[in-house]
Design a binder for these strands. Sequence first.
DNA 1: CGGTTGGTTGATATTATTCAATGGTCGTGG
DNA 2: CCACGACCATTGAATAATATCAACCAACCG
Lengths: 216, 216
Amino acid sequence: MEFCNAVMGVGREERRLKAEGSVRPRQHIYKSGEARGQIVVLRDGWAIRFVLTPDGRRQVLSILLPGDIAGGEFLMRNEARVSVQALATPVSYCAFDIADLKEIAKRDPGLIWTFVGIEIAEHEASEALMVGLGRRNAEQRIARLVLDIYERLERRGLADGATIPFVLRQKTIADLLGLTQVHVSRVMTVMKEQGIMRLARGSLTILDMQALRDVA
Amino acid sequence: MEFCNAVMGVGREERRLKAEGSVRPRQHIYKSGEARGQIVVLRDGWAIRFVLTPDGRRQVLSILLPGDIAGGEFLMRNEARVSVQALATPVSYCAFDIADLKEIAKRDPGLIWTFVGIEIAEHEASEALMVGLGRRNAEQRIARLVLDIYERLERRGLADGATIPFVLRQKTIADLLGLTQVHVSRVMTVMKEQGIMRLARGSLTILDMQALRDVA
DNA sequence: CGGTTGGTTGATATTATTCAATGGTCGTGG
DNA sequence: CCACGACCATTGAATAATATCAACCAACCG
């Protein structure tokens, strides 16, 4: 969002730099090792950034919601370090070539500061998740995840009261929070039974915000 | 290192910008919430970046070795998000005021790219640790930590063959890797018994590099 | 010395994993 | 329209990994 404006504001003639793209549910936007060389801004749909360990396990690094950015890593390297994949939703995005952005940045160093800001924010989010992985139990991690997604959607005007779209599979949550799908199921079942949240056909309602915050 | 050069190379008259500092073992370099407004480059000694959770637990976010940088967060905010504290060693560092750096950056946008690079590298390191926390067992995490520190010291010429200084307490390792001190003790004892490493009076020797890599 | 810090060890408890079976939902092709 | 397979969630039982509690020991330092 911010980023779109930062780039688009540079000059009218630059608009051609923006390329549109879209992928179907579950399709990759780019894969680890690929030389994509573009910064991607999600317009619609949800995606994940993740890596696969040599033994086949998956660690999800972040959930991308509309307005989020991926591919900052291309600023300093050619090959993607992580993969980015659409979730159960179709995803549309716009993409900016790194080479073009660097060209613009020569004339407008403010854009580089935007990159600094983006990376610092992402770094911060990673470290927040690290605290969760290292020092919180399954219930707390799940509660925080739900709150985090709720707040991000809310800020972007994508929440309907206490109800948000929620397209994460339990396996995805597990791979983000360092748990197993089975355990995520058990914990979420309890939270539903406690009347903290309700989950139906791709949408989640927070029934007891206070209880949720208390857990988290 | 890199960063020192990037800043120092800007012009001779800028050298006055660099302030020296040092703290005793276990002292804070800065604390979460403080408005320090400086980027700190470690010259000597080890430190940790960490946060405390409301319930009193600690998550170590990274280990800082000589040459490492802290305080990049001040580029975009006034108050520290994390604390930085010396380990069992005295620490000396140099510090650069953010305000001065921003002034220099106006004349030399290359410096901003340096910031981008620093943040991307740190972000990358955080995510590597996330994978460890989320998807690896205690033995693998510890093996990777030892390898990581060994390689970083080696690169900076601070290793003596397979022997490195090693000033981490088990509690610190535990708080970094999301374990308890007791469990770290147990796992490391086994690794020592297996002849993978030896640990004596603040120095660690990797006896079987291949075995260590196999575990990690 | 005596106190403090850090490491080791044992017994037990908790948390989460693994394995396996079951049922629901959804899209697709016959 | 139905049957089938793919994917997802739920549940139970057994197990493994790690935490917790508590005691003890060693090194170090004033």
